[in-house]
Write a protein that binds this DNA or RNA. Sequence first.
DNA 1: CTTAACAGGTCAACGGTGTTGTCATAAGGT
DNA 2: ACCTTATGACAACACCGTTGACCTGTTAAG
Lengths: 243, 243
Amino acid sequence: MSERVVPPGARRRRRPTKQGVVLSEELIVATALRLIEEHGADALSVRRLGRALGADPSSLYRYFRHTDDLMLAVADELIGRTLRAWRPTGDWRADLRDLGLRMHASALAHPRAAVLSSYRVTGRVHEIQAVETILGVLRGAGFPDADAVRVYHAFIDQALAFGALDSASTALPKAAREAEAAVWRATYARLPAATHPHIAAAARHLVHDMPRSSYPGALDLLLGAAAARLAEIRATVRPGQAS
Amino acid sequence: MSERVVPPGARRRRRPTKQGVVLSEELIVATALRLIEEHGADALSVRRLGRALGADPSSLYRYFRHTDDLMLAVADELIGRTLRAWRPTGDWRADLRDLGLRMHASALAHPRAAVLSSYRVTGRVHEIQAVETILGVLRGAGFPDADAVRVYHAFIDQALAFGALDSASTALPKAAREAEAAVWRATYARLPAATHPHIAAAARHLVHDMPRSSYPGALDLLLGAAAARLAEIRATVRPGQAS
DNA sequence: CTTAACAGGTCAACGGTGTTGTCATAAGGT
DNA sequence: ACCTTATGACAACACCGTTGACCTGTTAAG
């Protein structure tokens, strides 16, 4: 066995599959994404992916060391797509808001990849490009390096964390998702004021608010705090005028 | 088969297992938690849990309809423990900060349950108690119902989302976790300024910041924004003096 | 005190999963 | 034309969650 995965550059022998398909890293990732989109995140398994490709499942291990590796490649491809669709305008706050919402939406569309990419550092091309781009926006806006990294960190973690959270709940079978919303109406909204005064008082708001994502609000909060920090920095730096 | 799970109240026949153990919902949940603590989140499977209990795996289905159900019970137990350990002082901001950190820590200690509980509404006793308690803190501080729910929502989602995110990364095998940190040093910190100027400029900060959790910072941000909102509300309400 | 019902345990099986060791073969370089 | 070897196929392993059928001891009713 030793190492069955060959570095991408060294691949040459394009022997087709029994069913005539010529495999490649790109084709595998694209097919995985298609499977996820068409049949949901749970439809993705090595065996099913093999079947969809017209190849033996074990062939995939010539391209990825294990499932995780494959999912990271899928996640990186998603980052790339999100970044390509994004059109920065030069207004850092609006641009980051837009990017945050896009990342969140992309996570919602691909729950499984979102969960994985939320806590893994891929070190792949698109991820690096995203880091460079976001840091560029922040430094361009005038954040000193240390603050730029802090804001970047909070921004990216929040987008990923809420993305994973919200995507997990939309990935539930439809019946289960409706059942969740029903818990707020049927259980919480009916608790008597005698035993649960605070829930009873706020019941109306709970039923309305809780089944919705709190990400947009949290994002605005973060950007607001960052803007306040930037104003503070600018005020401090004015006298000396150095970066 | 029909319905094999009997509602907790109706249980009476306490026939012991072949190996002499008397099962109960509480014992199962406690054992599951112990397994997670001792051998990591991946050590928890129906079969292993059965083995640890000295019972056939299928016996567990007399108590929980499926694995999810079991994990929700585990999650609810965790909420209960966290809440019991928390000692509110009456200072809403300090109390919520303390509670948020405790929830985050508890998620770190029980990654698998954390992930599940982060996007599911259990409607179980401890969860309800937590909602009532937190809403009580906020309403007691003077937040009107609608704002209390908004702050509650952001607070709880943030704690759960970051908890799930951070716990997922600490649940990685130690080798993988070290590899992640190494990516920042070995890949990002070495990118040439010519192609990646922003990363190169901020490299030192990236290496230091990125492998750490951004939750405490994000939490303070949220509470700061909530405090600002409360001050605003108080200022507006002063003249009429009504709640 | 006997007896009938059934809660709650066991067993065996089904169809799935990721992963690996071994083998065969066709493509490429020489 | 040959040799090497990348790469695909196959079969097997050890797991997983879940279920239907069966059996038995406890319990409540008569």
